[in-house]
Simulated scan of single mutants.
Amino acid sequence: MVDVFFNTWDNNRINNSRPIDTNDPTYVIVHGYQSTGGNPGNNFTPQAWMSEMAQNIRDLEGNDANILVVDWQDGANTLNYFAAADRVDEVGVEVADYLLGQGVNPANTTLIGHSLGAHIMGEAGEELRERRGEVDRLIGLDPAGPEFEGGWFSRPNSTDYRLDPSDADRVVAFHTSSTLGYDDPLADLDLYINWDDLLQPGASTFVGNHGYAHTLYNDLLDGFGFAQSNGTTLSLSTINGNTAGSVFVDTFTV
């Protein structure tokens, strides 16, 4: 069984003595392959983007929110990507078990996952729907493609084994890497970010493209908006609103 740690974000730091208030909204953030959300082995130090995201949510919600930073480094820190991918369902069930054990209301919960973490949250959302009720929102940050979207020798995974629109009341996917990410639509709103460009802003490799998904979501949480040539603006309200379908956006636009 993969060791999973559920770290409570307070204000600018993890504080695992902070209790969960089931009357408040809950946000859960999980990482992907070869990453960490903080555990005893690294003195509970999450990836920088996770700390930034947790604090951005704290700044938006004030003190009245439960913010959990989830660590499954025990299963993700391997050279064998496919072994890590095969642990997605197990970790997703552990996330659901924990939330149910804490008495968290799925209808007041947002699940956020990057790469393999997006599919983990898909599994968690499915488990919660079947056992307690539908999750309010699920944000998939460049959901992982390899072993999930199929290829020359395999068919795409069924929706039981990956993120899909039934995993929450509203599912949003950021697509930022055609190499490491899932290319086809798999959410209520699929945002294809700078899809015709070789590299994302600030990226020098396809790995950087993959990470741009959480960079962009942090920018949106921080209040940034990106004007589009059609007169619309990509902002946090786009994510939280009613926009649906596949939408191509340009974040290079000034």
Score class of each variant (00 low, 15 high):
residue 108 N to M: 04
residue 34 Q to M: 12
residue 149 E to A: 06
residue 19 P to K: 06
residue 85 A to N: 10
residue 65 A to N: 08
residue 236 L to Q: 07
residue 81 Y to C: 10
residue 148 F to G: 08
residue 173 A to L: 04
residue 29 I to W: 02
residue 89 D to M: 09
residue 165 P to G: 02
residue 102 Q to C: 10
residue 96 A to V: 01
residue 135 V to M: 08
residue 10 D to S: 15
residue 184 D to E: 09
residue 224 F to E: 12
residue 6 F to P: 09
residue 209 N to A: 05
residue 30 V to T: 14
residue 225 G to I: 03
residue 251 T to G: 03
residue 106 P to V: 00
residue 194 N to E: 01
residue 198 L to P: 03
residue 181 G to E: 04
residue 59 D to I: 14
residue 42 N to C: 05
residue 167 D to F: 00
residue 179 T to V: 12
residue 148 F to Y: 15
residue 166 S to M: 01
residue 99 L to D: 01
residue 72 W to I: 11
residue 35 S to W: 04
residue 144 A to T: 09
residue 15 N to G: 00
residue 231 G to E: 08
residue 36 T to E: 09
residue 206 F to K: 04
residue 237 S to W: 01
residue 26 T to G: 03
residue 189 L to K: 03
residue 106 P to K: 01
residue 14 I to N: 08
residue 165 P to N: 02
residue 187 A to H: 00
residue 79 L to P: 05
residue 149 E to K: 04
residue 22 T to K: 14
residue 69 V to E: 12
residue 65 A to T: 10
residue 52 E to H: 05
residue 74 D to T: 09
residue 76 A to S: 15
residue 67 I to R: 13
residue 40 P to H: 08
residue 21 D to V: 04
residue 35 S to G: 12
residue 227 A to K: 13
residue 50 M to W: 06
residue 250 D to N: 12
residue 215 T to P: 03
residue 113 G to S: 00
residue 205 T to C: 11
residue 144 A to E: 11
residue 153 F to L: 15
residue 183 D to Q: 06
residue 187 A to W: 00
residue 140 G to M: 07
residue 114 H to V: 00
residue 156 P to W: 04
residue 86 D to A: 14
residue 61 E to H: 07
residue 55 Q to L: 11
residue 173 A to C: 15
residue 221 L to S: 12
residue 27 Y to E: 03
residue 80 N to Q: 12
residue 51 S to E: 12
residue 199 L to P: 04
residue 22 T to N: 12
residue 84 A to K: 03
residue 176 T to H: 06
residue 241 G to D: 05
residue 79 L to M: 11
residue 31 H to G: 10
residue 14 I to K: 06
residue 100 L to G: 09
residue 252 F to S: 14
residue 138 L to P: 07
residue 221 L to T: 06
